[in-house]
């Protein structure tokens, strides 16, 4: 799952990115409004976290602009301004949630998860697919009721596929979800991780669609 973080304070951004990485998220950083705007225009994110007070203006204007242009990405506002007026304004302009600084990463992650869940029309954080059960909240994966141990990257891959169960996920999408923008991974490393995943689960669960990407078969339907 890839998120966009818009935050101008470098130290804070580094901390958030580190924490969210640990929780199984790939996070890209934008340090001002124009960076965030172009990132959202050219790339796809599961969700965006916006600080409001940025060097080139208030992010509420960007939220408004994005929503006007039909950008559906869920936006969680993360700001030090705690007055009701600002909160209401941000929510009215199209923000999905609001977290006030200082905050605990756990809370931020939970709110992010809720918004992603909502966007994917899920009722809870557990995605079931035949014998496979993926719990996004506790970062656990069970196959035939047995807990499967996954590496961080394997988990990110499986989560990405599970969130789009029954749909083709492109190789690029999976790569950015795992490595982000500035990664210099070898071209076959993704295949290696998929291979490991298949080995740990049922090999037929993940199908390769040549030239398009990968697909987690929806076995429940």
């Amino acid at each position: 799952m890839r998120l966009l973080l818009l935050e101008d304070d470098k130290t804070l951004a580094e901390g958030i990115i580190k924490g969210l990485n640990r929780m199984g998220y790939m996070v890209e950083l934008a340090m001002n409004l124009s960076q965030a705007e172009s990132a959202l225009k050219t790339d796809q994110f599961e969700l965006a976290i916006f600080d409001l007070g940025l060097p080139d203006g208030n992010a509420v204007s960007l939220i408004k602009k994005l929503r006007k242009a039909g950008q559906p990405v869920p936006i969680v506002v993360l700001t030090a301004w705690d007055d009701v007026d600002t909160k209401v304004l941000a929510l009215n302009e199209g923000a999905n949630d609001y977290v006030v600084k200082p905050f605990e990463l756990r809370e931020l992650e939970a709110r992010v998860r809720v918004q992603v869940r909502k966007a994917n029309l899920q009722l809870n954080d557990v995605i079931n697919c035949g014998d496979l059960s993926v719990d996004i909240a506790s970062q656990q994966c069970r196959f035939q009721r047995k807990l499967i141990n996954l590496t961080r990257l394997e988990w990110i891959l499986l989560k990405q596929l599970a969130l789009h169960v029954g749909k083709i996920v492109s190789k690029e999408q999976l790569e950015t979800a795992c490595y982000g923008w500035d990664s210099d991974n070898e071209s076959n490393s993704l295949e290696v991780h998929i291979h490991h995943l298949r080995k740990k689960l049922n090999p037929s669960l993940i199908t390769t669609i040549r030239g398009l990407g990968y697909l987690l078969k929806d076995e429940s339907s």
Binding site: L12, G15, A80, W81, D82, L105
Partner: peptide
């Protein structure tokens, strides 16, 4: 006051987030 709280809360959050990361550091 809004600016001051903003300027103080942001580093405070950074401290909190990094502290949380220390607890869970691998």
């Amino acid at each position: 006051i809004a600016d001051a709280s903003h300027e103080l809360r942001t580093p405070l959050s950074a401290i909190q987030v990094h502290a949380e990361n220390i607890i869970h550091a691998e």
